[in-house]
Design a protein around this nucleic acid. Structure first.
Lengths: 269, 269
DNA sequence: CTCGCATGTTTCAGTGAATGAAACTGACGT
DNA sequence: ACGTCAGTTTCATTCACTGAAACATGCGAG
C-alpha cells in the first residue's frame, strides 16, 4: 500500500455545507415529485435562505431542475452518471423475482446486498407494506459485522479476507447488542456457517431483526446475500420459516447464476 | 405562479464548497478509473488537504469509494439515483443507431438533445475520434438560443413557448457571435424553419460549428434534435452534406417514433 | 379594488467553518 | 537504514456561510 496510515475519524473531516447539499439532493430524490423550496427547508434543519443558496448552486450545475412555478426536482445532470447508476447487474435481475416471493410470503422488507470495499452495499430493496418497516434506498451502505447480509457473506469468505475487512473497518458498536469483540464475531460466523443463515438481533438498529442467507456464484464463491428485516416483535414468530425460505431462495438464485454465467457476476470485496 | 420574482443572478448565490465538491465528483466520474487523491488535487485548483476533506465527506455519504490502496472512485450511493439516471427513453434507443451512422460518415461528434425547463439537455453524445473534438457528458446543459440543437427545436415550437423560454432565460452572450437581440433570433428561427436545419457558427463556443436537425414525435410536435459539431475549419467543407444527412437521419427517427405521420415539414411554418 | 397572507428573494453583520501551508506519519523501494 | 512519496493532521487566518429579518411579488378573500 502506498501513502500514510489509514484515517481514524472519518467524521472529523466532514465538510458541513457539502453534507447539507447532499441532504438537499437526497430530499429531492426521496420526494419523488417536484417540491417547493419551503418543503425542503421544513424537512431539514436548514434555514430557508440556506436551502435557497444550495438549490441555486445545484441548479447552476444541472443537478437540480426548477419548474416555471418554482418547484424543484433532480435535474438532467444525473444522466451523466447513468453508467454507474443505471447498471442492473445480472445478479439483481435474477434475484428480484425470488425477493418478491419472499416479500409476498412474509410481508417484511427484503434486501439484496453485496460486499464492496469492506462494506455492505444494498443493490435492491423491496419494501414491506407495513407502516412500521425498514426502508432505505438502493445504494445504501451498511457495515459488515452487524448486519445479517454482512454476516451471511462474511461467513463464507476466506479467513484472510475477513481479517483484512475487520482490520480496515473495525467492529464499531452501533447498538448495545453489536458484537464488538473479534473472537465473538468469529464465533458468530462459525454459527452462521453451521446453520446456513445469519441473524442480526438488533445489532445494527435496536429492535430490528434480520435474517440473511448467502448467494454463491458459479464458481462456488459467495457473491452476495439476501435478507429479510423487520421489527423484532413481528419477526420473532416467523424467524424459522423466513430463514428456511431465504436459504431456499438464495439456493435457487445461486443455481440460476449457474455454470452458464461466463461473466463475473459482481464485484466482490 | 406563486412566490416572489424570479432570480436575477444565479451565480450570486453559488456556494463555493458545494461547487468544489461537485468538481471533485465530476473529476472522479470523468477519470473512469480509480484515481489518487493527489491526482484529483492536481487537476483542480484545490489544495490537497481540501480535496482530502471533500473526499472524506463524500466517502462518508457513500458517493465515493476508496479502495484498500487509497484510490478513489464514485461509490455505491449512485445506485440510489438509478431511476433518474438510468432511464433510457425510447428516443435515445431509436436515435443512437442513426447517430452512429452520422459519426461514421463524417467523423465529427454527434449529439442528441431535448428541451427541458427552457434549456437543452444532452441525452446522448457520440464522440469524434479526432483529438480536437467537442466532448461532454450526457446530462450536460446548454442554452437554447445559441446551440444548433436549441435552434432546431425552437424553430418548430409554438411562438408562445419560445417567448416564455426567452423571457425566462434571456439571450446571454456566450461568444462575440451569439445572437443577443430578440428580433435577430426570431429571424434566425425563421431561416431555420425554411431550410429545415439549424446552424451554430461559433455562437456557443468560438470556432465551433454545429449543424442541427429537429426530431418530431408521433403527434407532429418537435421533441428533440440531433446535431453534428466540430471545429469550424473541418466543418466548413462538409456543412452541406452533414445538414442533408442530419435531416434525413432525424426524419428516419421521427418515422420510427410514431405510426402516424407525415411530420410537419421542412417547409412549413 | 384593497388587503393580508404565503412564498421566494435579497440583504446584512457575526462568526463558525473552510482554507492552504507546512509539519507529520507510515510504507515502500533501494 | 534511509530517502521518497503520498496521505493525514494541525493550525492560524480569513473568507464565506449562516439565520434573521426585511423585501418583493402573486394570489385569494372580502
Amino acid at each position: 500500500m502506498r501513502g500514510g496510515r489509514l484515517p481514524r475519524n472519518l467524521d472529523r473531516y466532514a465538510v458541513h455545507v457539502v453534507d447539507r447539499a447532499l441532504d438537499v439532493l437526497e430530499t429531492l430524490r426521496d420526494s419523488g415529485r417536484p417540491v417547493r423550496l419551503q418543503d425542503v427547508a421544513q424537512r431539514l434543519p436548514i434555514a430557508k435562505s440556506s436551502v435557497f443558496r444550495l438549490l441555486c448552486t445545484l441548479e447552476r450545475r444541472g443537478y437540480v431542475d426548477r419548474t416555471p412555478d418554482n418547484l424543484y426536482r433532480l435535474g438532467a445532470h444525473w444522466l451523466s452518471y447513468r453508467d454507474l447508476a443505471g447498471k442492473h447487474p445480472p445478479l439483481t435481475e435474477i434475484s428480484v423475482p425470488h425477493m418478491r416471493r419472499l416479500l409476498d410470503a412474509y410481508g417484511e422488507t427484503v434486501n439484496l446486498g453485496v460486499l464492496r470495499e469492506g462494506k455492505i452495499v444494498y443493490l435492491e430493496m423491496l419494501e414491506s407494506a407495513h407502516s412500521f418497516r425498514m426502508a432505505a434506498a438502493a445504494g445504501t451502505i451498511s457495515p459488515v459485522h452487524s448486519t445479517a447480509l454482512g454476516k451471511a457473506i462474511a461467513a463464507f469468505l476466506p479467513e484472510s479476507v475477513i481479517d483484512a475487512t475487520i482490520r480496515r473497518r473495525g467492529l464499531p458498536a452501533l447498538t448495545p447488542r453489536t458484537i464488538t469483540s473479534r473472537a465473538a464475531w468469529k464465533r458468530e460466523l462459525a454459527r452462521t456457517r453451521v446453520r446456513g443463515y445469519a441473524e442480526d438481533n438488533g445489532e445494527t438498529e435496536p429492535e430490528v431483526t434480520c435474517i440473511g442467507a448467502p448467494i454463491f456464484g458459479f464458481d462456488g464463491n459467495v457473491i452476495g446475500a439476501i435478507s429479510v428485516s423487520g421489527p423484532a416483535s413481528r419477526m420473532r414468530s416467523i424467524r424459522q420459516r423466513v430463514a428456511r425460505a431465504a436459504v431456499d431462495a438464495c439456493a435457487a438464485i445461486s443455481r440460476a447464476l449457474g455454470p452458464a454465467s461466463e461473466r463475473r457476476a459482481q464485484r466482490g470485496g
